[in-house]
Design a binder for these strands. Structure first.
Length: 580
DNA sequence: GTCGCTTGCCAC
DNA sequence: AAACGTGGCAAGCGAC
């Protein structure tokens, strides 16, 4: 069956495999020579471990083939196994999950990813197939999708139930591979020329993370249940008290503010849109039973719902399959969702929900103050570099030199000023914000920042040089950007070029972290990975191998090729929470 | 009922 | 001259 309905370029042919003749035609087509074979899947949803693979599409710049998986799984498996040429997916990790869990194994070392390419070229833009096609191929690329959405809602179809032979479904599915193939041909010259090294890093890392997602994270469901019930019981009781006493929901900030003011509380801070601000910071300063109750309700509901209930809800048996986006942030950092395991509260309560596999222990290995060390590296500042090379606590050594006081010890109250001041530098904050976070008057903050700059002049030099480079490129190329040592491109957010100082540090830390993941996989430790957390790796390791693996991790992760050593600390325990 | 926005809060 | 960076998630709430 061939077709070319509205919105599809005339020179493109679309095919749906429905009979053996179609299958034979597909195999003949597959045997032709082409620069790249694009592959995509349509599925019943997002949960690849518990859902149906419905359609697999193959295509190149001129043809798209949609093949229903269930009746043609043999054809699809054989075709993917046999195909030796370059492959391209748009967001390969997602499709590979579906294909592999359904017994179809494309050659991974041949896999390319246009979403990765797009992110490297334009790290500040959305990298959906539609957006990329509209940006680089044809502004009308997304037109078919809205028609399909309308038809689906009219007939009450979901992605799991829409008939596979409904033309608006399979034709646009087949168009997606054509777009992917064209995107690849458009982007690959630039990616090869400008981003070869970081692209290879991203692809290697992506496969390791995919296998990590497949293995999943083991969760202690009865612990979650127990904690949830305790917290939930409290919040039900506290909400009822609030309703009975004041007549409104504790979650309604508008009503809470009105009640507090009615009871004589003076509010001064407002939100961006002009409402009375009811943040933790504001409420904790108010001595009123309502303020305190609202705070504890928020706290316990956050714990109960965002964490424990969420874990129970998402579990596949006793496993969670969090989804990692290797290029989640514009800086090259990863992000994690379902659940967001990178934002678990510190301390034992929530982290203890995650346990090692049977016969295993949890192992954690983290880069110590990696961003501070990179700040020292990029600044080339003798004093900062010395502070990291000398024995003892970095911020204490810095404190001695800033205040010219050899008696400055780790317990010195000024240490937090030093630490916060350095973070303010690294994040690019101004003196006003810095003064607020450390709780000192602005003129004191100013004096301190001046002292910091004088003690470590490299910090300014570094910031200036980032600014100059970005500004120069802004003029010459129209975009303010810098590159990390691996070639990753970092683009300044609109009107905030100062953020590039932080981006350089954060982006380089991301590169280092990803290189560590690739190296540890090469060293045979990849199979133990559980979760990456920005500068810390969480693993589940067979008990008897723990000492060996910890030594291996330190060996693989630590680096000496920067101006300061990058040090790694490791721990082990039964639960995530027991890693110090 | 769903959707998107706002507000608030968790991490590194 | 001055500018705290990067994310995800849930509840409330108004619009459709």
């Amino acid at each position: 069956m061939s077709s070319s309905p509205a919105g599809i370029p005339d020179d493109v042919s679309m095919h749906l495999v429905e009979c053996w003749d179609d299958a034979a035609d597909f195999r003949r087509w597959l045997g032709e020579r082409r620069p790249v074979l694009a592959v995509d899947t349509e599925t019943s949803g997002m949960e690849w471990w518990d859902g149906d693979l419905r359609l697999v599409q193959f295509g190149d710049a001129m043809s798209g083939w949609a093949i229903p998986f269930e009746p043609w799984k043999g054809l699809i498996r054989e075709s993917l196994k046999d195909y030796e040429g370059p492959l391209v997916f748009h967001n390969a990790k997602f499709d590979l999950h579906w294909l592999e869990t359904n017994g179809a194994f494309p050659r991974r070392h041949r896999v390319n990813d246009t979403a990765v390419m797009a992110h490297l070229v334009s790290p500040d833009q959305r990298v959906g197939l539609k957006e990329c096609s509209a940006r680089w191929l044809d502004a009308r690329a997304a037109t078919g999708q809205s028609e399909l959405k309308k038809a689906m809602s009219k007939a009450q179809w979901t992605w799991g139930t829409i008939p596979i032979d409904f033309e608006g479904y399979w034709v646009y599915a087949a168009l997606d591979v054509v777009l992917t193939a064209r995107l690849y041909e458009h982007l690959v010259p630039q990616v090869r020329a400008d981003f070869g090294r970081v692209y290879d890093l991203e692809m290697a890392c992506s496969h390791i993370l995919m296998d990590m997602e497949t293995r999943g994270v083991r969760v202690d469901l009865s612990y979650c249940q127990e904690q949830y019930e305790k917290l939930h019981a409290y919040s039900v009781e506290a909400r009822a008290w609030c309703k009975n006493t004041y007549g409104f929901e504790a979650g309604s900030n508008r009503n809470v503010a009105a009640q507090l003011m009615g009871d004589g509380v003076v509010l001064t801070k407002r939100t961006d849109r002009g409402a009375w601000s009811m943040t933790e910071e504001v409420l904790s300063g108010i001595e009123h039973p309502l303020a305190q109750t609202v705070l504890s309700i928020r706290k316990s509901e956050k714990l109960a719902n965002s964490y424990f209930a969420n874990f129970i809800e998402m579990a596949d048996g006793d496993l969670l399959h969090p989804s990692v986006r290797p290029l989640g942030a514009r800086t090259g950092r990863m992000s994690v969702t379902n659940p967001a395991l990178q934002t678990l509260p510190r301390g034992r309560l929530v982290r203890d929900a995650f346990i090692a596999r049977e016969g295993h222990l949890m192992v954690g290995a983290d880069y110590e103050q990696v961003e501070m060390r990179l700040a020292a590296h990029f600044s080339e500042d003798e004093g900062l570099i010395e502070a990291f090379k000398s024995e003892g606590d970095f911020f204490t050594v810095m404190g001695r030199s800033i205040f010219d006081d050899p008696t400055f010890e780790k317990s010195d109250p000024r240490r937090s000023l030093v630490k916060n001041g350095m973070y303010a530098k690294v994040y690019g904050s101004g003196t006003a914000r810095f003064a607020e976070t450390v709780g000192i008057p602005e003129h004191e903050a100013q004096t301190f920042m001046l002292k910091l700059d004088q003690s470590f002049p490299g910090l300014r030099t570094f910031a200036d040089s980032v600014g100059r480079t970005a500004a120069m490129r802004g003029v010459r190329e129209g975009t303010e950007y810098i590159r990390t040592p691996t070639g990753r491109r970092l683009v300044a957010p609109e009107g905030r070029s100062y953020a590039l100082v932080n981006a350089a540090i954060q982006g380089t830390a991301a590169d280092i972290f990803k290189q560590a993941i690739v190296k540890l996989d090469a060293a045979g430790l990849g199979e133990y990975l559980v979760m990456p957390v920005h500068d810390e790796l969480i693993l589940s390791v067979p008990e008897e191998l723990v000492p060996e693996v910890e030594a291996g991790l330190v060996e693989v992760m630590e680096r000496d090729d920067f101006l300061v050593p990058l040090a790694v600390d490791s721990h082990h325990g039964v639960r995530w929470g027991s890693l110090k």
